[in-house]
Computed example of a mutant assay.
Amino acid sequence: MRSTAGSMTPTGTATEPDSAGRVRRFSTAERMVHRATGYLMLLCLVSAACLYIGPLALLVGRRHLMITVHEWSGILLPLPLLLGLLSAEFRADLRRLNRFAAYDRQWLRAVRKRRTSPEARPAGKFNAGQKIYAGWIAGAVLVMMFTGLLMWFMGLLPFLSRTSAIFVHDVLAWAITIAVLEHMRRAFEDPEARLGMRTGYVSRSWARRYHSRWLHEERDESSDEK
């Protein structure tokens, strides 16, 4: 029986995935943007925890270093996305994330009614939940940068108080932490999705089950090219 997970070399390294059983989901540029953004986000959240959670602050110490790491990881957070704009595949996926279709509303209704069948939850390359998460996290990061810069350079907007900036920054930081942890939990529950982000390929059966509209789009594009 042919494996759809790709063959293995004697050293245990995965070779090129079997094209008959798999479909390309993410380009190298997209995977690098996701990985770099994830590392910067984790640095930002962990350094914040070392600053604001008492026991962690005592354990780690080096407060000045943690402040520097937190500030610069936050400032650099949008950089992978900006570099990713050089990739046509990345720009195409941004357009997909920014477009809400009728079947996305059907997906949300199915989630609300706890329907799990693929027919009840149609999705393109990204489902409605992923689109909402991407939009929300992008907006939240911008607000965090704005409030962080206000705290760093208090003379930037003198009519805004430091207390207000700190309050918004701290509350949103907890919201982002919860959202990122939920994102990671869902990723760990779906090994195929992680494989797609790690190797760029997913099985056609997985894509057919969770992203059937995307497979139709891929077939239509292939037909147009021919």
Rank of each mutant, 00 (worst) to 15 (best):
Y210T: 14
A138S: 13
E16W: 06
F146A: 08
R96V: 08
R22A: 09
S73V: 09
S222I: 01
H169W: 09
F188R: 10
L160N: 03
T9M: 04
Y39E: 10
F188C: 13
A88Y: 05
M41Y: 11
R186F: 07
M154R: 15
M154G: 14
T147L: 02
V46T: 09
E182S: 12
M144H: 05
L94T: 09
V202G: 00
H216F: 00
F26E: 00
E71F: 15
A49E: 05
F90V: 05
L51Y: 02
L56R: 12
A138C: 07
R22I: 00
R99N: 13
L215M: 12
K226H: 07
V171M: 03
L86S: 04
G74P: 06
M144R: 03
S19R: 15
L79A: 14
T68W: 05
Q130R: 10
E218G: 02
I166L: 11
W214L: 12
V111C: 12
L59C: 03
E89K: 07
E30R: 06
F100Y: 15
L195V: 04
P10H: 07
F167L: 13
L85E: 04
V23A: 04
R63A: 09
I166P: 00
D220K: 13
G21E: 14
A173E: 04
E119A: 15
Q130F: 08
G155N: 14
D104V: 10
T13Q: 12
A29S: 11
V168M: 08
W152M: 13
L97N: 05
